[in-house]
Each structure stands twice: as C-alpha cells, then as structure tokens.
Design a protein around this nucleic acid. Structure first.
Length: 269
DNA sequence: GAAGGCCTGGAA
DNA sequence: TTCCAGGCCTTC
C-alpha cells in the first residue's frame, strides 16, 4: 500500500522526470477520481503550463505548476503513476501529456485514490487541509504531545493522518515492532523510553524504506514500472505464523479497527 | 471510538 | 461463489 516511503520515492522520481516539462493536455478518463475540480478545470488550468517541481506531503504527491496551481495525487491502495508506459491501459483514469511527447499515466485499480487541483489556495479537501505532522520532521517531544490524552490504541493513532501524516498499516506495524511496543497499547501508558524508541523507530523504518524504493506488496510500482524492495525487509507485516526475526517467537495477526495488525508477542509489550 | 461502504482482483 | 486486502470518509 502506498504510504510515505512510496509517495516519497515517486515524488523524487517525478521531480527528476517532470521538473521543467510543460503539460500539453490533461485527459481525465474517469471523473470520479477527481476529488476537487472537474475535467475542464484540469485542462484549463494546466495545459500549456510548466511543472516547477514535484514533492510529497504525507501520503500525497504534489505537482507544482508555474502558474501557482498544484495537483495533489493520492494513490489510495492500488494507485500508480507511470512515465511513458502505455502497455497496460486498463484502469487508467488520467493522462498528462507533455509538450515534448512524454506522458504521465495515472492508474488505480481499486480507485481508492484520487486527484485534487488547488488553485489560488482553493480546492483543497478537508483531508489535505487537516494533515498532521510530517513523521520525518517531528521532534520526539512533539510526537508525544501530538497524541495528547487520546484514548485509542497506539497503532490506530499512528495511522491517523490528522495527527501524523504518512504512516499506514505497514509502517505503523513495522515502527511498533522496532520500538518494542504492543500495537494495542494506549499512548498514555507508554514510558518515556518507549516514546523515544518510537520516535527513533519511525524515522529508521521510513528512511530505510525510502532507500529501498518503498514496499511493493501488490500494485505499487516506481515511475518506470520497477518494484520497490523494502517488502523483503519487513519484520512483522504479512508474516503471521512465521518466526520473529529477533527472537524466534511466532508472529501474531490480530484485527484492530478492522485492520490486520502484525506483531511479535515477545518483543512487543 | 468502532464499524460500514467504497472498489477490484486474486485466493479460498 | 464468497471472502479478503485497506485508506479514508460517513454513520452509528
């Protein structure tokens, strides 16, 4: 599932490929992927416009245009951005055609993702406006205070984009494993040592994954169609029934708020 | 704070 | 044929 490292990987690749290129046309093949704006809006405001840069915010990829417009891309679960790959045309919802002939294809099989166009600061969805802190920038103190006195389980709170923007199921589980924290734990019960460990673990896991080009479990691909490599280094996610890589205990799978949750019953407490 | 719905493809 | 994956929004 595309989370922060996957969005970051794509944003970096898009920066290299798209910065300085000019959009010729924007073809929206399925209007329902537009979370703000309409097909005509995309064409009107973006055609003939140069892309200045590509960046990431939370799990979103943001394209900055010279006229101040921004396009926010959320990949949902199965979203893909491909450069010049016309091979698989199924589930293609939008195509950005460039003046020099290249094209950026947006695919999303399950359609949980979407596109947002921001112009003059307008058009942002509530989800974007209320995005929480960046996990790689937040201080240890702010991480702790960000959870305040919330009563939820730490795993679910880590995935709350309004608190921390960018962690999903995979990296929440992987971070908690490295911090030695039981995903069912309530935040107010964490010791100072565990908070420090969690802050460290989040940075470590995200940075390692970015270095590996993200995790390709099912559909996530790089701009050129290649797979990420970090899934090979997951220590708990998707490893139910297998031995813990640290202690050998059997990794457990439970369901928290309807989401699969993987942890080591011995290393995490 | 928890649960349902969206959506599709692949596995059971 | 049914179930499951889950990000995010809506509803309870």
């Amino acid at each position: 599932m595309p989370e922060l490292p996957e969005a970051e990987t794509l944003a970096r690749q898009l920066q290299k490929t798209l910065a300085g290129r000019t959009v010729l046309h924007v073809k929206i093949l399925r209007d329902s992927v537009l979370k703000s704006g309409r097909a005509e809006t995309f064409e009107k405001f973006l055609s003939g416009r140069k892309i200045e840069k590509a960046a990431r915010r939370g799990k979103f990829i943001v394209l900055f245009f010279e006229n101040g417009c921004k396009v926010w891309v959320h990949l949902g679960m199965t979203g893909q951005l491909m450069w010049d790959r016309g091979v698989d045309e199924s589930h293609v919802h939008a195509i950005f055609e460039f003046a020099d002939g290249g094209k950026l294809v947006y695919r999303d099989i399950r359609r949980f993702g979407g596109l947002v166009i921001e112009k003059n600061g307008e058009g942002l969805t509530e989800g974007i406006k209320k995005l929480g802190a960046e996990p790689l920038e937040i201080s240890a103190e702010a991480l702790k205070s960000g959870f305040g006195k919330r009563k939820g389980r730490i795993k679910n709170l880590l995935m709350n984009q309004r608190i921390l923007a960018g962690l999903g199921n995979i990296y929440a589980d992987e971070s908690l494993f490295r911090a030695g924290i039981d995903p069912r734990k309530r935040p107010y019960r964490l010791t100072p040592e565990k908070w420090a460990a969690l802050h460290r673990a989040i940075r470590q896991v995200l940075n390692e994954s970015i270095e590996a080009g993200g995790s390709s479990i099912d559909d996530y691909r790089h701009l050129d169609g290649k797979r990420g490599e970090f899934q090979k280094r997951h220590r708990v996610y998707g490893r139910a029934g297998k031995p813990c890589r640290s202690c050998g205990a059997v990794i457990r799978r439970i369901v928290l708020s309807g989401r699969s949750t993987f942890f080591c019953p011995k290393c995490q407490f």
